[in-house]
Structure formats: structure tokens, C-alpha cells
Design a binder for these strands. Structure first.
Lengths: 334, 334
DNA sequence: GTGAAAGCGCTAACAT
DNA sequence: ATGTTAGCGCTTTCAC
């Protein structure tokens, strides 16, 4: 059902149909005619051609989200809020998993050449030269959400991991904990890891607590989610190093950590308070339910879309990082 | 950079450019010319217009996925495998969260009127008259993934919940468990709930185990994920009803269940074996890691896309349900 | 306030 | 094997 047929049925010109049915309806159409057109369109079950529209106007009103392969881990809700934000602005959203392509994100962006899209929201890869090249080649603006890479080549949104970690530890300190263990994977190549560790130190320093190297437990093996316990923590307990709290680099570490503490007969939070970071869905399934820093998922998605639309509208690309603070969610572990 | 300019730069006609650069390149182009065209296109950073292409061919080569609103969906991996399957078939994927629209899925489908898409993959709502109407109105084929509604109006994919539940319980029986508790939410309006319960009974019957009504524990309050323990199970223990295994209607129930058992001093799996259903990501974060029936996420997504493409290509719409069997994943809870 | 007509960039039919 | 041309369905001047 093309516009022509609606115009014929309504007894008006095609231009009037177009004006009456435009996304933001044209003011120069009399209410009467608009009504006539709408009726005819309904009757004919007219469906405007997005293709013709896009061809004519040069804008797809569509955004692309490029996801790494493990993507809908913690940021699923961020993707969701992007959808909502985009919809509010009248844009569709296409989702493209990188999907094991050799070349990673850059290849994925490259393959957007024949995708009807106006811009790209990329998770991670904020420092990827090849993505920048692809972006320039296709004249496709890119915005990233990334807290892994230090140097960024695009407008980038990140969680304020340092402030978040500090807040988490300060919460522990406020409930009279003095010997706080830091549990991490030791993968210092990732920015968020360094930042969270820095936040931990910030909190201890600010509170004037003594620094004890032994309280820093790095468990590279915990990168495997299916791990059962954290040997580093068992070690600590066996060696008799005293501690009354643990800050987990991220929520998923809390699962093996809690098993380890339980095995050792330590009660949470009575003997040891535990705080995580992320507020993944899993956080409240753990036993006890995990107190944690919640990622600002919703805000991340919303602001990313706004940033991207800004760029699409031709505004200056402010390359650089914008930080958003996470918030404490208190549950039962500390 | 339109095709014309590439044709000019390469010194060939537009048709040749079109043929050389088509998604599935036309055979009738000499290798030499194709190379010339490609080079010119690269140089000019030519990007084909998806709009013009779609306008001309009448196909968007795009599918839409309509998602319910729950923040953390169990279907996440299914959506991912749909992306991959669609990409393999040269289709883009648009994602549309229902997003609190009044009217739910039907309104969401309705609003696809001006979305450049060829078909819809809908999670849930397989029995929704209004969706059917919208689908007809827009002449947009719909395929659903749904195991909540009994009557389906579209080609529908479902997990074989009954066979799955039976397999789960048979696994328990095979390890010499004889008194198996069924823990559910009692929301019998949902098909998968009835089916899983039926599968439980099937298994008991097949094994010739006595039926004990007291072993069926319905905990409506567990619909709230943040619940800590299951009072129905505590009750059972207090009352002195003996049992040596629990089948959970779905994985998330295992979190409060395991807390309840632990509180009562029961060891898992020594005293009580526990098996869940879904194999959500959370399953292996529980303590002990949960043995469960894994939803066939990948197959669900792949087959749904194939089904949809089939319909788009004009093949007969086989309204009705297709079942896919889940598989047992043995971990440490039973 | 409304209509007539041009043209967005591509592909397919036809001609060579 | 390649060039020429018409036209997909819309929006946007430009008339009136």
C-alpha cells in the first residue's frame, strides 16, 4: 500500500498524505483533511516505507549497538536502557554481536558499511585504532561505554570505579571493620581493576588504617566463573591472618568467596562483612544476599544514547571519558 | 558517495558497480572490472545505501525481536543466538523492548508499522489476539518463543518442559533418591509450570514411587527474587516430613531453597539432592553449584530465526508448537 | 492549505 | 559481459 493509493482513496494529493502522516505531523494540514487521510490509511492498512523515507531524508533514525561476545553479562540492563532512550528519541536500535569475527570490534564496525544505521554505540574497545579508522571510513559516529581501556579515542562513558570502590570500603569502615581484605583477579591490564584497587587504598588511607600487604589476595584462577573456592583466601585463614571484611573486585567473585568463608566456619556478616561491585543479578541470589555497589546501568545507557545522538546531529565530538558514580545497595552480607 | 560517482571513477556503468558490489556478487562481471570497481569504491569510501537497496528490492533483510521488560531475562542467550543465526542469513536484527507500553506486546508490534523490518520474533504472548491482528494488519509475519501460554496463534518454539522435568527427577531417582520434594510457585496459569509439575509426576509414576501430597511445596511468595528462605520447606522440615531430594520448578528458586536447607543443618547433596531447571547463569554461582536442566537456548534462537525466515519467504505458516528438549547439566547439588 | 513534479540511490529488465 | 533506463515510495521545493 503505497502513499499514492492512500491519496487516491482520500481524494487528496500525495503531498498531503505525506504531510498528514509524517512522524512529526506537518502543521499546514487542515484537521479535516488529516482525519480523512488517516481513515483512508487505516482502511488500506497503509504502512509507510521506512526505506523510501530514509532514502529521501538521508537519515535512518537508527542506532547500532555493537556487543562483545560475552556481552549481556553485567551490562544487559545498560543495553535495555539504551533501547528505551533511543525509542524516546524516535530511533530504532540494531544489535550486532561481534560474534567471533577475527578482527573483533573493528571488523564488526566495518561490516556496518551496508547496515542502515546512523551511529554506533560500542561496548569496550574505546582505544581501538582500527575501530577509529573504520568509523572514519564509514563516516559513522561512534560512542563507547568502556572502563577497561585507559586511553580512549571516542566520547566514552565509564563508571567511576575508584570512587565506587572507596565508597564500598568506607561503608565497611563505617561499620567498624578495620582489617579489610581485597579480593581480585590481579588482571591489572584492565583499567577498572586498577581503579577499584586504588579506591580500596584511598579508603584505607583516608581512614588512617594500617596497610597490610597480606590482605591483598589476587586469584587469577577466579576468572573462571565455575571455580568453587578461592585458595588465596583459604590460605589467609589457614595462616591465621586476621580480617573482618572483604571487598570483592566484582560480584561474581563473591560466590566462591562466600563458599570459602563458610567452609572455614566464618559467619557472614558477623565474622566477616562482604561487599561486592556491580550489582549483577546474581548478587541477591547469593547467600547471604550481597551488599554491593550498583553500576549506574540505566544512566549509562541513557547518556550514551544522548551522546551519540549529539554526535549524529553534527555536534563536536568530545573525545574523552565521562564518569558516572555507582551507588551502594545494602543487603545482608555487610 | 553514491554509486554514480564510483561508476564514474571506475569508468564503468552504474549497473556494473551494482553487480560487482552486490551482497551476493553477480556472476556476470569480469574479475578485472570487479577489482577496478572495488578499488574505486574503497578510495571514495563508498557506502551503499541500505535505504535505496531496500526500496528497490522490497526487502529490508532485517528481523525484529520484541522483548518483555524484565530487566534480567532468562532469554538473553537465546536472543544472542538469534543474532548470530540472523547474521548468517544476511539479516540485521532490531530489538524492541515492550517497554511498559500500555497494551503490551500488541502495541509493540503495532508500532512496528514504520520500522524497516521483514518479520517479528516475539518472546511470549503466543496466544495474544491483538498481536495476531497487528501482525495481519501490517502483513508482518510473527514467530514466538513461548512456554507460558497453552494456545498458540503463531508458529511457536518451546522447551519440552514435561520431558525435561521428568528427566531431572529420573536423575534423582537414579541416584537412589526416593522422597522427592517439588518446590514451585503454584502459578498454575503458566503452561511451563503445569508441564514441569506433570513431568515430576511422570517420573514418580514411572519409577513406582509412592505419591505423597505433602512433598509438593508451593511458595507463591518466591516469585519475589529477593526472598531469603522458603517457609514451606522450613515447615516441612519442622513437621518432620522426611525427604532426600528437591526438584525446583526453576533455578532461581534454588537460591532461597539452599539457604533454607542450610539453616536446617541439612547438607546438599549428602542429605538432600537438589536439581533445578533452566541453567541460568546464576546456577553455577549457587553453593553448591546447581545441577539443572539446561534450556536449549542456542537451538531456540537458531530455530526461531529459521522459522521466521521461512515465513518471510512465503512458506506456509505452520501455526503450532515445536518442542525442544533440555539437557541435564550435572554439577554439585545432586 | 494543497497539488504537481523532481529526485534521493539503487537494481532489474532490456538492449547490445 | 556491460551500458542505458525506468521506477521503487517517499519528502520537498515550487506554484497556486
Amino acid at each position: 500500500m503505497a502513499e499514492t493509493e492512500v491519496s487516491r482513496a482520500a481524494g487528496v494529493g500525495v503531498a498531503t498524505v505525506s504531510r498528514a502522516l509524517a512522524p512529526d505531523p506537518h502543521p499546514d494540514v487542515s484537521a479535516a483533511k488529516r482525519e480523512r487521510v488517516r481513515e483512508a490509511a487505516d482502511l488500506l492498512r497503509y504502512r509507510p516505507s521506512g526505506a523510501a523515507r530514509a532514502l529521501r531524508t538521508g537519515a535512518y533514525h537508527a542506532l547500532s549497538i555493537v556487543l562483545p561476545d560475552d556481552a549481556w553479562g553485567w551490562w544487559e540492563p545498560t543495553v535495555r536502557s539504551s533501547f528505551l532512550a533511543a525509542a524516546e528519541e524516535g530511533h530504532h536500535v540494531l544489535v550486532h554481536p561481534i560474534g567471533g569475527r577475527t578482527g573483533g570490534a573493528a571488523t564488526a564496525v566495518d561490516s556496518l558499511a551496508d547496515v542502515p544505521t546512523d551511529g554506533v554505540l560500542l561496548f569496550g574497545s574505546a582505544n581501538d585504532d582500527d575501530v577509529l579508522r573504520a568509523s572514519n571510513r564509514l563516516r559513522l559516529p561512534v560512542v563507547t561505554i568502556d572502563d577497561v581501556n585507559e586511553n580512549v579515542l571516542f566520547p566514552t562513558l565509564s563508571v567511576d570505579n575508584r570512587a565506587g570502590a572507596q565508597a564500598a570500603c568506607e561503608h565497611l569502615i563505617a561499620s567498624a571493620r578495620r582489617r579489610i581484605v581485597y579480593v581480585g583477579t590481579g588482571s591489572a591490564s584492565e583499567l577498572f581493576v586498577r581503579e577499584r584497587f586504588a579506591g580500596y587504598r584511598d579508603a584505607l588511607t583516608a581512614a588512617g588504617l594500617a596497610w597490610d600487604e597480606r590482605l591483598v589476595v589476587q586469584s587469577p584462577e577466579a576468572a573462571d566463573e565455575s571455580i568453587v573456592t578461592l585458595s588465596g583466601v583459604s590460605q589467609l585463614i589457614i595462616t591465621g591472618v586476621r580480617f573482618d571484611a572483604v571487598f570483592c573486585e566484582y560480584d561474581l567473585l563473591a560466590a566462591p568467596l562466600l563458599r570459602t568463608l563458610r567452609l572455614a566456619g566464618l559467619r557472614v556478616p558477623e565474622d566477616v562483612a562482604v561487599v561486592g561491585f556491580d550489582d549483577e543479578r546474581a548478587a541477591q541470589l547469593l547467600d547471604p544476599q550481597l551488599t554491593t555497589m550498583r553500576q549506574p546501568y540505566g544512566e549509562l545507557g541513557h547518556r550514551a544514547v544522548e551522546l551519540l545522538l549529539d554526535r549524529i546531529r553534527g555536534n563536536a565530538p568530545t573525545v574523552g571519558r565521562q564518569l558516572i558514580r555507582p551507588t551502594l545497595v545494602q543487603r545482608h552480607s555487610g
